[in-house]
Amino acid sequence: MTERSKNIIVLLIRWLLAAVFIYASLDKIWNPAGFAASIDNYRMLPYMLIALMAAILPWLELACGVALLLGRWQAGAALLVMGMNAVFIVAIASAMARGLDISCGCFTTSTAGARIGAQKVLEDIGLFLGALVVYLHRMHGK
């Protein structure tokens, strides 16, 4: 594979990650209380951490999405995307292990949104690997 095709593939992955994270942030930014309820459904955190996460996490998703889209602070944004997806994977796997049947809260705060399940874990693993590719490409000075 030529250097040029590698660069194009990484650019497409970066833009895909940017689109996913910007889209994922919008409904949550609009409705922090609804997002707090989605986080609360996982039954992993005390109230104050839920509230802080509901207020800040969507803006972090948006900031990372914009950084990846514009190509500024790419490595930092890719690191954060990896970190967020690692947390999402643990949260979903933990909820599945406890037998919870809840909406994911991934792209919408609605309780009618997609449910948690193996598909969501695989999606998050895919996003994690995409961010890893962007990070490693950036680390190697490309």
Partner: peptide, 19 residues
């Protein structure tokens, strides 16, 4: 580490804006 400084900046921006 590469990117950690920018990750911290992004987190601070998100925290201030989000709150």
């Amino acid at each position: 580490w590469p990117g950690v400084r920018h990750a911290i900046y992004l987190t601070i921006i998100a925290a201030v804006t989000g709150l």
